[in-house]
């Protein structure tokens, strides 16, 4: 366990020193501060727009950070040959991979926590939201964090056998597909004109692909007019789902990385 934690803490340190990540984070934070002023551009209720916009900024920024952070992680170590010094120590490849992954989500968690805190602060100061409203609002970033952990595991998995550029588009594509496929599948299954074959195909794909849309819980937070049934059970279910899927990708990554020549 110790080697894993050592690699993870080193990875966090590296991540927060990377300028490109800090710039992305800075842009996200700037948008979060500017967001309250943009509500006037819209005809919609200011609170609704602000909620939607802030959650959108956090999600988008986190996704970009998650991909940029993880796609270079393994290839950089190989390219700079630092991996040899690590693997020559009593550290196995699986510990290296898991350590890198934990470090990535640790850094990601810190950055997301910063953005979420700013959002909470803005709502508390400008919108005079009470504790229960703020707690409701905080649910979405927590779910986004699990979503980004899943995204990071997708990128880590691909980084064991493809180049960073390809990985960037692969992981991004998977995120887009996994976010869109549930509503798309819903459209297909509820449309009476859809062929049975297409429905079965959509069902299979939707079951196999990592489903990022499970974590898009912002709709009832932005428009709070629907009671969510068994909310706690749902969050628990999607968290376990995320852990299972992260497990699949990490084990898959370990198996591939283990066979790779470095």
């Amino acid at each position: 366990m110790k080697p894993i934690l050592s690699i993870a803490s080193t990875t966090i340190g590296e991540a927060i020193r990377r300028k490109v990540l800090l710039i992305i984070l800075l842009i996200g934070v700037l948008f979060l501060f500017v967001a309250p002023g943009l509500g006037v551009l819209s005809a919609r209720s200011e609170t609704t727009v602000l909620r939607g916009m802030m959650l959108g900024i956090i999600q988008l920024t986190s996704a970009v950070i998650a991909i940029v952070l993880t796609v270079y992680m393994i290839p950089n170590e190989i390219e700079r040959r630092t991996i040899y010094t690590i693997l020559s120590k009593p550290v196995t490849r699986w510990q290296f991979l898991v350590g890198k992954y934990l470090g990535a989500i640790g850094a990601l968690g810190m950055m997301m926590a910063l953005m979420s805190s700013i959002m909470i602060l803005v709502f508390w100061r400008l919108q005079s939201a009470d504790v229960s409203q703020l707690a409701d609002l905080a649910k979405a970033p927590v779910m986004y964090f699990i979503q980004m952990c899943l995204l990071a595991s997708v990128a880590i998995f691909f980084s064991t056998f493809v180049s960073p550029l390809v990985n960037f588009f692969l992981a991004g594509g998977m995120y887009l597909l996994g976010s869109l496929f549930s509503p798309f599948f819903q459209t297909l299954s509820e449309n009476p004109n859809t062929a049975q074959v297409a429905k079965i195909f959509a069902l299979v794909v939707n079951t196999i692909l990592p489903n990022f849309s499970n974590y898009n819980v912002q709709n009832p937070i932005i428009n709070p007019n629907q009671t969510i049934q068994n909310e706690g059970a749902y969050y628990l279910q999607v968290t376990i789902y995320g852990l299972f899927y992260i497990g699949i990708l990490l084990v898959g990554g370990i198996l591939i990385f283990d066979r790779r020549e470095v």
């Binding site: 549930s182 509503p183 599948f185 819903q186 459209t187 509820e190 939707n206 489903n211 849309s213 499970n214 898009n216 819980v217 709709n219 009832p220 629907q226 969510i228 049934q229 068994n230 749902y234 279910q237 999607v238 789902y241």
Partner: peptide, 16 residues
Amino acid sequence: IYSSWSRDFAPRKTVA
């Protein structure tokens, strides 16, 4: 999860 999500969280199901 899919059934619960489409009931409570999906972006307006009938439009989809």
